[in-house]
Design a protein around this nucleic acid. Structure first.
Lengths: 242, 242
DNA sequence: TACTTGCCTTCCGCTGAACGGAAGGGGTGC
DNA sequence: GCACCCCTTCCGTTCAGCGGAAGGCAAGTA
């Protein structure tokens, strides 16, 4: 990368991720690939700006200043606002964890999430990215992605659980069925004990702009009811987006 | 402030706020108080890092990179997660806009928000700060703040609507009543056509850690029912926090 | 106690990157 | 034509960032 101070700052901040929300100074320096003394100075600067906080145990975490700034980012603001009430309705109707995701390259980017009291084991969180082949919303986004994205995604079918689909042919068949049926399902393909149903959310030009999904312990005979509830919500969002 | 590049970067980013989510280069330079050429270079750096985006119309907005980073900040993560399901319950019971806020100095910092289909005019949003004297959650937080904070807050009773309380004595009387009653109300004190009810959320040591509030068009005879619903939710959150 | 290993912090001389005034290029209004 | 407002680029000066090195803690090992 460039050698500007700015890029160094973001190299350093890039050391944080969903699995590393707090780091020691040396871990920061190591992960960012810079000398300890340099990291030390940068961290001091960032702390002065409120971009980093130091917890009592000495580890550093992202500061409130960055939280503030991040919330100002126009990441699908319109979509999130339009969808918000329908997500609640959906939660009310299903009592399941509800997800709203958009496609970001070959990943599903979760832009909203609504967890219930009883949550099945779930790895997603707002801001996290998950592969397109192992989740309900991912499959929906995959089914409505351009051909080159589908091709790229099919080359990275990493196995996550024993039930994850890793054969391109089978996934491709599912993609076709999802397009025809208008919804996708998964069964413990992302995490054991969690099944999911998802439907596309369409924009004014009928293009798929997002995916709306729920996660439940088991589908059993609920599938038709859940799909119906999802479709009602998705259509509501679509009408609001008009 | 310091003159480090890092602090300059945050001076520049600080030009963005809830009312200025997109800015031209010159506006950025002006608001950050730096020469245009300097702002130009910094903006170029930030864009390269994904911290800023340029919209088609030429204005700059906070980029997705900062959104990602901001979501990693441990801003009341535990509280938000514990509260989330109860916020939904509360929405289900009241169909009102639901707010969760903590005190940040002499402001109420909104850390979660849940808007319904029919939303009364509301200025708050997640990440925004509002004064302690003009909102339901603000008054609750004020009523349970240390004396010096109360004193400081009483010196800044800015008028927002014709109904805003600006006399320290009257506000102080309300604060006492709020402590006694266990809930606060407002009537169009922050925005016309919006009333609110709020209750404290207590932590393991029975200290007030947050305020939970709802905004409705009018209180009428609903007040007892709304207060009851709020208290149920607040107690649920408190139990989860144990 | 003495040694090691891991943290964090401070120092300091060199150097190249940041700085910002100035100049220039496009657009719009009058 | 001129005036005004944007944005962009250039370039010589200078000073702030750099990072190796040294040192100070605290915990674990012999």
């Amino acid at each position: 990368m460039g050698a500007s101070v700015t890029s160094r700052v973001f190299d350093l901040l890039g050391a944080f991720d969903a699995g590393h929300r707090s780091l020691t100074l040396s871990a920061l320096a190591r992960r960012a690939g810079m000398p300890l003394a340099t990291a030390h100075r940068l961290v001091a600067d960032l702390r002065r700006c409120g971009a980093l906080d130091r917890r009592p145990d000495g580890e550093y975490v992202i500061g409130r200043r960055l939280w503030d700034l991040g919330l100002l980012a126009p990441v699908q603001t319109g979509l999130r606002q339009a969808a918000s009430p329908f997500l609640h309705d959906l939660y009310g109707a299903t009592l399941a964890t509800v997800h709203l995701a958009v496609r970001d390259g070959v990943s599903a980017l979760y832009i909203d999430r609504l967890a219930g009291h009883v949550s099945v084991p779930i790895v997603s969180d707002v801001g996290s990215r998950l592969p397109l082949h192992a989740t309900g919303v991912g499959k929906v986004l995959l089914a409505h992605a351009p051909d080159d994205v589908v091709a790229a995604a099919l080359t990275r079918l990493t196995r996550i659980t024993p039930y994850t689909l890793t054969e391109p042919a089978r996934l491709l068949a599912q993609v076709r069925r999802i397009r025809a049926d208008g919804y996708a399902t998964t069964g413990e393909e992302m995490s054991l004990g969690a099944c999911s149903v998802a439907v596309p959310v369409r924009g004014p030009a009928d293009e798929v702009v997002a995916a709306l999904g729920i996660v439940v312990p088991t589908l059993r005979r609920e599938r038709p009811r859940l799909v119906a509830a999802l479709q009602v919500a998705a259509q509501g969002i679509a009408r609001t987006l008009q």
